[in-house]
Amino acid sequence: MNMLRQRPLSLDVLRSFEAVARLLSFSAAAEEMHLTQPAVSRQIKALEEELGAALFQRGTRKVELTQAGRSLLRAVEPSLGKIDSAVRQIRLSRSRASVSVTTFPSFATLWLMPRLPDFERDHPGADIRLSATDRLIEVDDEELDLALRGCRPEHAPPGAVRLFGDLLTPVIGVRLAEAIARGDAPPLQQPGDLSGHTLVEMDDGSVAAAAQAWTAWLAPLGLEQLTPRRRITMNYTHQQTQAAIAGQGVALARLAMVHDVLERGDLIEPFGAAGRRWSTWCYWLVPLAGGSRRPEVEAFTRWVLEEAALTRQAIGDAPDVDTGAHGD
């Protein structure tokens, strides 16, 4: 075996190859790379010798990729893009203040993102990097500054600060409410009437889904055996909310996530405040290793806690309310 061909390929040579392959011109690639045309030609020739295959068919007026060239380009093009993106991100993080936040998709969509413009307005010099994922995050992850997560109080990690409790409430959209008022849909005046409607809920097999499911809401009313007209199950809370707004059924919403939507009138609580039930979950802010008390992270933390206080006030999460939590 020729050991020479086992050496790693030079990044500069691969950049020259990508430029020639993309522009199909040695002279144009040389101009873009700020090199001479003979220098680029020598790089490509050396690369072909190292690979043992021709990468280009060189004609009098045009250059074309060979099969080997197309194969190499498919690997090189996305790889160079990822490298350049990572370099830009590293340079940006070293030159600008930034806060890296991880949370789950529904919390990001329904609670955090609608409020972010206020923080960005007051802190124009801070970039926000938001990672919306259900993946569990290690508290010593140095790439992240803060986590916004939901769990039972006894499972909250050390240092977690309680934001607010989880208050569940049935909601419907304006379209369904109008259909009920016209008599085009079954009545919805008391919980037992849910049997005539489609129930929308989250079902991803998680512990959270069980705690926030229709069964948990119906059980205290003695209606755990209630059979709805049909069920629609979805992976995320924000999907349930959109389904309810679209008139697809009755969703069991998290009041902390939708009280702004209720205030706008896009969603309606058919049973009013009487239909609200606390779940055993709470939402938490968890400082992570990456934060290291940087000013922008501390400013973001203060802002989240201020917004959370407003949410607690809006949903009636007061100190004398039993939400299943153990306090801040």
Rank of each mutant, 00 (worst) to 15 (best):
S195N: 11
A46T: 14
E64K: 09
A132M: 12
E298M: 14
Q43D: 07
H326I: 10
A216P: 01
R58G: 06
R277W: 02
T237N: 08
S93Q: 07
T169Q: 02
I83G: 00
L112E: 03
A208L: 06
M113I: 08
A75W: 11
A274V: 07
G196F: 08
L51R: 04
D127K: 08
A318G: 07
A21R: 00
P228H: 07
I172S: 01
E120R: 11
P170I: 11
V174Y: 01
D12F: 05
S206H: 10
A289Q: 15
P170R: 06
A132T: 09
D317R: 02
E201H: 12
E269P: 02
P8H: 09
L35G: 00
L267I: 04
Q6A: 15
L148F: 09
L11R: 14
E142M: 09
G291P: 04
Y236E: 13
A46G: 10
A75E: 12
L168A: 00
L4S: 12
R121H: 13
I44P: 00
S93Y: 00
L148H: 02
R302S: 15
L194H: 02
C151V: 09
K82G: 04
D84Y: 03
P228T: 08
I128G: 01
V174Q: 10
H155L: 15
D317S: 03
D266W: 08
A156M: 11
M257Q: 10
T323F: 00
L14R: 11
D328S: 13
E143P: 01
T237L: 04
W214E: 00
L305I: 04
G165F: 04
V171S: 01
Q43A: 08
W217R: 02
Q212F: 11
